[in-house]
Deep mutational scan, measured.
Amino acid sequence: GTEIELESKNGQREHYTATSEDEARKIIEKAVRRGIKRIELRGASEQLIRDMQEIAKQIGLQYRTDGSL
């Protein structure tokens, strides 16, 4: 699965493990709508990382991946 670590603007951290790319995408989209400061992805697919970079650029988000592409 993909591990997703979120940090909201007030510094609250949340951790999710998505079993599918679809689920990961839903978690990320929800977080973005809620207003999130930072997202870290571990074990994400190349496609998901590309999507994440696109989203991050659009809304000026900090993100990090573990680089295991």
Score class of each variant (00 low, 15 high):
G1S: 12
G1Y: 15
G1P: 10
G1E: 11
G1W: 14
G1L: 15
T2S: 03
T2N: 02
T2V: 14
T2Q: 03
E3C: 13
E3W: 13
E3Y: 15
I4Q: 01
E5Q: 08
E5K: 10
E5S: 13
E5G: 08
E5H: 12
L6Y: 08
L6A: 02
L6K: 01
L6R: 00
L6G: 01
E7P: 01
E7I: 12
E7F: 12
S8T: 14
S8N: 14
S8F: 15
S8L: 15
S8G: 12
K9P: 09
K9Q: 12
K9L: 13
K9C: 15
K9D: 13
K9N: 12
K9R: 11
K9V: 13
K9W: 11
N10C: 14
N10F: 08
N10S: 12
G11Y: 01
G11I: 01
G11C: 12
G11L: 02
Q12V: 10
Q12P: 04
Q12D: 12
Q12H: 11
R13C: 11
R13Y: 10
R13E: 03
R13I: 13
E14V: 08
E14G: 02
E14K: 07
E14T: 09
H15K: 10
H15I: 13
H15E: 04
H15F: 12
H15W: 11
Y16E: 01
Y16V: 04
Y16M: 04
T17C: 13
T17E: 07
A18P: 10
A18V: 13
A18S: 10
A18T: 11
A18C: 14
A18H: 08
A18R: 02
T19C: 14
T19G: 11
S20R: 03
S20V: 01
S20Y: 03
S20A: 04
S20W: 02
E21P: 05
E21K: 02
E21F: 05
E21L: 11
E21G: 05
D22G: 07
E23Y: 04
E23W: 03
E23M: 05
E23N: 03
E23R: 02
E23C: 07
A24N: 00
A24W: 02
A24I: 06
A24E: 00
R25W: 10
R25F: 06
R25Q: 01
R25V: 06
K26S: 11
K26H: 10
I27L: 04
I27H: 02
I28A: 02
I28R: 00
I28Q: 15
I28P: 00
I28L: 10
I28C: 03
E29H: 07
E29F: 11
E29A: 12
A31N: 02
A31Q: 03
A31F: 09
A31W: 06
V32Q: 02
V32T: 03
V32P: 00
V32F: 13
V32H: 01
V32I: 15
V32D: 00
R33P: 02
R33V: 09
R33H: 12
R33K: 12
R33A: 12
R33M: 11
R34V: 13
R34A: 14
R34H: 11
R34E: 11
R34D: 12
R34Y: 05
G35A: 04
G35E: 05
G35M: 03
I36K: 01
I36A: 07
K37H: 11
K37W: 09
K37P: 02
K37G: 04
K37Q: 09
R38F: 15
R38M: 07
R38D: 03
R38C: 13
R38A: 06
I39S: 00
I39V: 07
I39T: 00
I39C: 02
E40L: 15
E40G: 07
E40C: 15
E40M: 13
E40D: 06
E40N: 13
L41D: 00
L41S: 00
L41P: 00
L41F: 06
L41C: 03
R42Y: 08
R42A: 05
R42C: 08
G43I: 01
G43D: 06
G43T: 04
A44R: 02
A44S: 03
A44I: 02
S45P: 04
S45N: 09
S45Q: 02
S45I: 02
S45E: 01
E46A: 12
E46S: 10
E46P: 11
Q47L: 07
Q47H: 07
Q47P: 03
L48V: 03
L48A: 02
L48D: 01
L48N: 01
I49A: 06
I49F: 06
I49D: 05
R50K: 14
R50G: 04
R50P: 00
D51Y: 14
D51C: 07
M52C: 09
M52H: 00
M52I: 15
Q53G: 06
E54I: 10
E54Y: 08
I55G: 00
I55Y: 10
I55R: 03
A56C: 13
A56I: 09
A56Y: 05
A56W: 05
K57S: 10
K57T: 14
K57E: 12
Q58M: 09
Q58G: 07
Q58S: 08
I59M: 14
L61T: 04
L61C: 14
L61D: 05
L61P: 03
L61R: 03
L61Y: 10
L61Q: 04
L61F: 12
L61M: 06
Q62P: 05
Q62W: 07
Q62E: 15
Q62C: 15
Q62T: 13
Y63W: 15
Y63E: 07
Y63H: 07
R64A: 15
R64Y: 15
R64N: 15
R64H: 15
R64E: 15
R64T: 15
T65L: 05
T65M: 06
T65D: 15
D66F: 03
D66N: 05
D66P: 04
G67S: 05
G67A: 04
G67Q: 07
G67F: 04
S68I: 11
S68K: 06
S68E: 10
S68D: 08
S68T: 13
S68G: 08
S68A: 06
L69V: 11
